[in-house]
Computed example of a mutant assay.
Amino acid sequence: MCLKRRDMLFPPLPASHILTFAQTLDGGGVEKTLLRLAGEWVATGRRVTVIVGDVAGPLMRDVPEGVDLLKVGTKTMVGMSAIARLTAEIDPDVLFCPGNHYTALAAWTRLRLGAHCPPIVAKVSNALVRRDHNVPLAAGYRAWLKWHPRFVDHLVAMSPAMADEASVMMGIARDQISVIPNPPPRAGSPCAPHTLPAGRFVLGVGRLAPQKRWDRLIDAFADIDHRDVSLMILGEGSERATIEARIAAQGLDRRVVLPGHVEDPLPAITQATALALVSDFEGVPGVLRESLAVGTPVIATDSSVAVREIVTSPAVGSVVVPGDAAGLVAALDHWLEPGRSRPQPIPQPGRNAAAAYLDLFDQAVLERRFKRGLRRAV
């Protein structure tokens, strides 16, 4: 009886149970952000279940207490299609797709479950205009994006420019897209002092993956004028052997270090002379915001519409066209000039991101209930 009275006084919130998923816990930015949000959602009393393909990875230690972790046992996208079956079994109130890399799984879940599928809220995590695609692949990708309104109930972009791009590329009405910046990361275990190079250094932070194009930074680093400067790239991934071979080929073994994944790169970002991000494509690169928040200048490729929203002035950083090798060398030389002024720190947005998502989840559930009520009435 007491429980019934409590339920009457405190009715369950519309999105009481949130289901989300990730392929691996290898250390990607999408997955790191997802775990930060999940922890904050749990702290407000929501139930959060995270389906993971493979839990082996450095982010396993970042899984917040109270989050229900469900392992699929394989990180292949085919194996991850079990999400549709698991969603039916778990019966959550809302399904959150944490990045556009994963929207095929959201589409498969909607196709399999039909009207029984919970509302799907999906986040745009990477640029939708991809310079790395050839003509046939680009055409197919554009066609795929236009399918998203068929299975996504609401879209989240991390910046206004990305919301505008999503509206055009996906054909989703602008009022069906919310802008919610990623939450800034919390400080974790500091970088061990011995991992920081002595003297001045350029820093790269990100997975050792083809998308990040660390080969560009290594090649440019071989051509800069400042031979007293080191390069450190924090991250781990499938391209380690290829990157190490490139470092050796350029004769940079003593000037370039790859310490691997670190839980908290902020100490290294704070000490760096400049931070470089040279990707083919990005979403809203959180590492650029982290760097500018501590007054470290940035050098970035024009890898998404959001980059120039972050790097708003030549006083805080340089933006170069992907593939412009000479431009990248010039930008590095500019920021490595002795006595160059560092920018004033720029506060990061997104401190209320978790609450904004919960409001959106509740709204999506209520809208679904309203539409079902209308159908029954008819």
Rank of each mutant, 00 (worst) to 15 (best):
P181W: 02
G199R: 06
V294R: 01
G295M: 05
R368W: 01
W147G: 15
R110M: 01
P338S: 13
M8F: 08
G28R: 02
A157R: 09
N352E: 12
E282G: 04
D68T: 15
V316N: 08
I269V: 15
K371Y: 08
T103Q: 06
A354H: 07
Q348Y: 03
K371H: 13
R186V: 12
M60C: 12
A104I: 10
F370I: 10
L288Y: 03
M1P: 15
A274L: 10
R142E: 15
T44Q: 14
V316L: 00
L336R: 04
G317I: 00
A166Y: 07
A293S: 15
S81D: 00
G373K: 11
L113A: 11
R368H: 10
I51H: 06
I51E: 11
L19D: 11
E236D: 15
M232D: 00
R227E: 14
P345C: 01
L105F: 04
A166I: 01
N352Y: 01
R131K: 11
P160V: 05
P193S: 13
C117H: 09
L69D: 13
A161L: 00
R174I: 14
L252K: 08
Q363E: 14
V168E: 14
Q363D: 15
F96M: 05
A315P: 05
A377S: 12
E337M: 09
F201C: 12
V94H: 05
D93I: 01
I177Y: 02
G171I: 09
V168F: 01
F21P: 00
V179G: 07
I299V: 15
K75H: 13
G171L: 06
R246Q: 14
A209E: 14
F96I: 05
D362L: 07
L128F: 09
D280P: 01
R375T: 12
P347D: 08
C97I: 08
I299Y: 01
L111I: 14
W108G: 12
L9H: 10
R308S: 10
T273R: 13
M162F: 00
P185D: 03
A198D: 15
R130K: 13
S159D: 07
A106Y: 01
Y141M: 05
H334P: 06
K212T: 11
R6N: 07
M80V: 03
G350H: 03
A272Q: 02
G27P: 09
L13S: 12
E290M: 03
V156Y: 02
S189N: 13
L275D: 02
V378H: 13
K371F: 05
R142F: 02
W41G: 11
C97Q: 02
V42M: 08
